[in-house]
Design a binder for these strands. Structure first.
Lengths: 206, 206
DNA sequence: GCCGTGATGTCAGTTGATGACATCACCGTA
DNA sequence: TACGGTGATGTCATCAACTGACATCACGGC
C-alpha cells in the first residue's frame, strides 16, 4: 500500500473550489482546504504559491492551444486574421469544460483579489501571444498591439458567453465580437430602444 | 499649534515610494513606511486599504480627463475616434508628471504584485470608459470592446513612452500606436532581421 | 467653559506565507 | 536481502499583513 493517497494537487484544487464556492474566498482558510484534502497547510504551499493560485491550474490547455494555433497559422495572414484563427481554435477547449468554467468564474467574480489574479493571467497570455507573433516576423509594436487586442476581444466574448442564459457557443460569441471590432471605425449606430439582449456583467474593480 | 503635522496621506505616499525604490517592495515593511512618515502602522491602514494601494492615488486626474473627454466628444464620431480623442486629451496629464510616472513605473515593473494591482486599475478604467460610451448611446458590446481596445492601445503606447530613451512625447506614441492598429488587417509586413530597438519590457506574470 | 468629533495611538489577535529540520515508504543496487 | 538515497509529506517556529476594539485629546461650535 502506498504511503500517500494519490493526486494531492488535484485534491487540493477540488477542496479549494468547493470551499470558495460554499463560504466565499475570504472566509476560507488555507488550513481548512488542506484538512479537507487530507493534507497540511505547509503542503498546500508546496503545490501552490499562494491561496489564489489554486484556482489557476499550471497546465493550461487554453494557452497551449492559442500558442500553437498562432505559431502555425499561414504566414500570409494579416495579424488580426491570425488572432481570429487562434481564438476560434481555442474556443472548444473552454466549451468542453463549460461547467467548471462557470463555477470558477462565479468564484472569481465574487472576489477582487481573484479578479486581479485573473487579469494577471490574461496579461501573461497576451505577452506570450505577442512573443509568438514576433517569432512569426512581426515588428514588436504591431505584435504587442495585435496580442492585446486579441485578448481584449476574448475578454468581451468570454464574458458574454459566461453570462449568456441561452448558452450560445463561445465560438459564435467570438465571431460576433470580432465582427463588432470591424465596425468600430464606422459612424456610431445608436441604440434607440432596441430589443438587444443587454448584458449587466460585472463592472470590474473600483 | 495643531495637534498633527499636515497631509498625513501625502507623507505616507512619499515615504512609501522612496522606500520601495531604495529597498524594493518586498523588503519594506508597512511599519517602516509609517515610522518614516511619523505615523503608526495602524494609521497607514486608515488611509490605504493595503500595502500596494499607496502607489495608486485615489484622486486620479488621468481617469477624470479620460471620462470627461469621452463624454463630451462630438456625438457623430465613430467609437474608435472617440477613444482617439480621449487618449490624446489625456496624454498631457502624464507628460506633466513624467518624472514621477517613470519612478512609479520602475517600482511597479520590479514587482508582480504591483503589476497585478496596476492591471486592476486599468481594468477599472476600461470599465468606466465602457459605461461612458454606453451613456453616449452605444450598444453594450460595442462600448465594452471599444473601451478595452482603447486601454490596450494606451498600454502599448505607454510602455513605449516609458522605455523610450529619446523621450518622445506620449501623444506621439499614442498616435503611432493607433495608426498601427489601423493596419492590423493588412497583410503582414515582415521585419527581416532588423536592428530594431527591441523592447525588453516586463513580460507579465507567469 | 463644556461637549462632540475626527484623526491618531495602543494592543491583541488571526491568517497568509516561508525557512529549517524530521520522517519514512519506495526504489535501485550491491 | 540488506542498504542507502530520494521525494513527498509533516512539524515547528517566525514574520509580516491586516483588522477590531478601545483610548486619547486638540479643535471648533455652542
Amino acid at each position: 500500500m502506498s504511503r500517500w493517497k494519490p493526486d494531492a494537487r488535484g485534491r487540493l484544487e477540488k477542496a479549494a473550489l468547493e470551499l470558495y464556492n460554499h463560504q466565499g474566498f475570504d472566509a476560507t482558510t488555507v488550513a481548512e482546504i488542506a484538512t479537507r484534502a487530507g493534507l497540511t497547510e505547509r503542503t498546500f504551499y508546496r503545490h501552490f504559491t499562494d491561496k489564489r493560485e489554486v484556482l489557476f491550474p499550471a497546465a493550461n490547455p487554453l494557452a497551449d492551444t492559442l500558442a500553437n494555433a498562432t505559431a502555425t497559422a499561414p504566414a500570409s495572414l494579416p495579424p488580426l486574421a491570425v488572432i481570429t484563427h487562434a481564438l476560434t481554435e481555442a474556443a472548444p477547449v473552454l466549451e468542453e469544460r463549460a461547467d467548471l468554467a462557470r463555477q470558477r468564474q462565479a468564484v472569481i467574480a465574487a472576489n477582487p483579489e481573484l479578479q486581479e489574479r485573473e487579469l494577471a493571467k490574461l496579461a501573461a497570455l497576451a505577452s506570450m501571444l505577442a512573443r509568438t507573433l514576433r517569432e512569426r516576423g512581426l515588428e514588436a509594436t504591431t505584435a504587442a498591439l495585435a496580442a492585446e487586442i486579441g485578448i481584449a476581444t476574448f475578454k468581451v466574448a468570454f464574458e458574454r458567453w459566461i453570462n449568456d442564459p441561452d448558452r450560445h457557443p463561445l465560438a459564435q460569441r467570438i465571431r460576433e465580437t470580432l465582427d463588432t471590432a470591424g465596425h468600430l471605425t464606422a459612424p456610431a449606430e445608436h441604440v434607440a430602444a432596441t430589443d438587444d439582449v443587454s448584458f449587466t456583467g460585472h463592472e470590474g474593480v473600483t
